[in-house]
Nucleic acid binder design. Structure first.
Length: 189
DNA sequence: GGCTCGATCTTG
DNA sequence: AAGATCGAGCCC
């Protein structure tokens, strides 16, 4: 098994910063999910930033509702929602409480304990056993957290437009999707 | 109460 | 190119 240092867990202060910065810095970091005794670890290779109520692609543009309660809550918590009636998506809430900002985790490179595909937000959640039960979960918890790890070459970060948000007019074109160029686990090239 | 539409993925 | 599948959000 590839040696991995899981000791440097990301703290709340990491998430309480600018969303695009958090998005970029999450690339290369490890997502750790504990299911019973089992640990599932993946390296984050693709994310998208969602910038709050004015961002027409963000769920927070609908305002504070039952669904967006966690999204408008404190940073460092998981916003998990159901898309297309069958897939879950995992977001990391960022910035100050009430900002409605988050980073969507779109793809992982398997590191340990992952036996299913993780290239895409729906597959990622399925492979890690993440569903609505984890909505609002503290991301510094045993069950679900992230770990600091060096990014080999920051120059590999590419910014393109976000996927599946064509309805968001000019917001759809902003380069808010970040991924590691050439990484085979990115959901689309 | 009913209608529409997804921050997706698979199959044809 | 289209289907699976269902709840949130919105309008009545």
């Amino acid at each position: 098994m590839e040696p991995v240092d899981l000791s440097k867990r990301l703290q709340l202060s990491f998430y309480q910063r600018d969303t695009q910065l958090v998005a970029r810095e999450l690339l290369g970091k490890l997502l750790v999910r504990r299911v019973g005794d089992e640990l599932r670890v993946g390296r984050i290779v693709e994310v998208e930033a969602y910038l709050g109520p004015q961002d027409l692609a963000a769920h927070s543009s609908k305002g504070l509702t039952k669904r967006t309660r966690v999204l408008f809550g404190p940073a460092g918590h998981a916003y998990v929602y159901l898309v297309y009636g069958m897939y879950w998506c995992l977001n990391v809430v960022t910035e100050a409480e009430g900002s409605g900002t988050a980073v969507l985790l779109r793809a992982l490179e398997p590191v340990r304990g992952i036996g299913a595909r993780t290239q895409g937000p729906g597959l990622l959640c399925r492979a890690l056993g993440i569903d609505g039960e984890l909505n609002g979960q503290d991301l510094t918890s045993e069950e679900l957290h992230q770990v600091d790890a060096p990014l080999a070459d920051p120059a590999l970060i590419v910014a393109k437009s976000r996927i599946g948000v064509e309805y968001a007019k000019e917001w759809a074109r902003l380069p808010l999707r970040f991924y590691l160029a050439g990484n085979p686990y990115v959901s689309r090239s």
